[in-house]
Computed example of a mutant assay.
Amino acid sequence: MTIVHNILIAVQILAAIAMVGLILLQHGKGADMGAAFGSGSAGSLFGASGSANFLSRTTAVLAALFFACTLLLAYFGTPRAAGGDSLLERAPITAPASQIPAGNAVPAPAAPASDAAQIPAK
């Protein structure tokens, strides 16, 4: 289980670093106004509008991968009970003292009779 745990941690760290880098590369919504007036972003690597689609989709995929790794790490990190899955299955079954009727108490067993008591005296 430790190999799976280590792989999940590594994937989560790489996804987080890649998401930070991609988010910092993206331009805000106000940058589109400058591109309309010829600010020079039309000559970028992905084209005028191609970078927004590529970077935003890649960020969404990395975010989904990050959340999946987080959920799996939480699932594998939760300790499991050895007796059962539920607290109710492991709870002792006892009746409260208030539900036992007072008049129907079971008498204590009698002491066994000794041999001396059974021999008649003459």
Rank of each mutant, 00 (worst) to 15 (best):
Ser44Tyr: 03
Arg90Gln: 14
Ser41Pro: 00
Pro101Cys: 02
Thr94Gly: 09
Thr78Arg: 10
Glu89Ser: 14
Ala48Val: 01
Thr59Val: 06
Ala48Trp: 04
Ser98Glu: 12
Leu71Thr: 01
Gly84Glu: 06
Arg80His: 14
Asn53Arg: 12
Val61Phe: 14
Gly84Asn: 10
Leu62Arg: 01
Ala95His: 06
Ser39Thr: 01
Ala52Val: 00
Thr70Arg: 10
Pro101Gly: 09
Phe54Cys: 06
Ser41Gly: 08
Ser56Thr: 09
Gly83His: 03
Ser98Val: 08
Pro79Gln: 14
Pro92Asn: 15
Leu72Ala: 15
Pro96Ile: 12
Glu89Lys: 12
Ile93Thr: 04
Ser49Ala: 15
Gly43Leu: 06
Asp85Lys: 08
Leu87His: 08
Leu62Ala: 04
Pro79Asp: 15
Thr78Ile: 15
Ser56Val: 04
Ala42Ile: 04
Tyr75Met: 09
Phe76Lys: 08
Thr59Cys: 07
Leu87Ala: 12
Thr78Cys: 11
Ala42Trp: 07
Ser41Tyr: 03
Ala91Asp: 10
Ser56Asp: 07
Ala60Tyr: 03
Ala95Tyr: 07
Leu87Lys: 09
Ala102Cys: 04
Pro79Cys: 14
Pro92Ser: 15
Pro96Asn: 13
Ile100Phe: 10
Ser49Thr: 15
Glu89Tyr: 13
Ala42Leu: 05
Asp85Cys: 02
Ala97Arg: 03
Phe46Cys: 08
Thr59Arg: 03
Gly38Leu: 07
Phe67Ser: 09
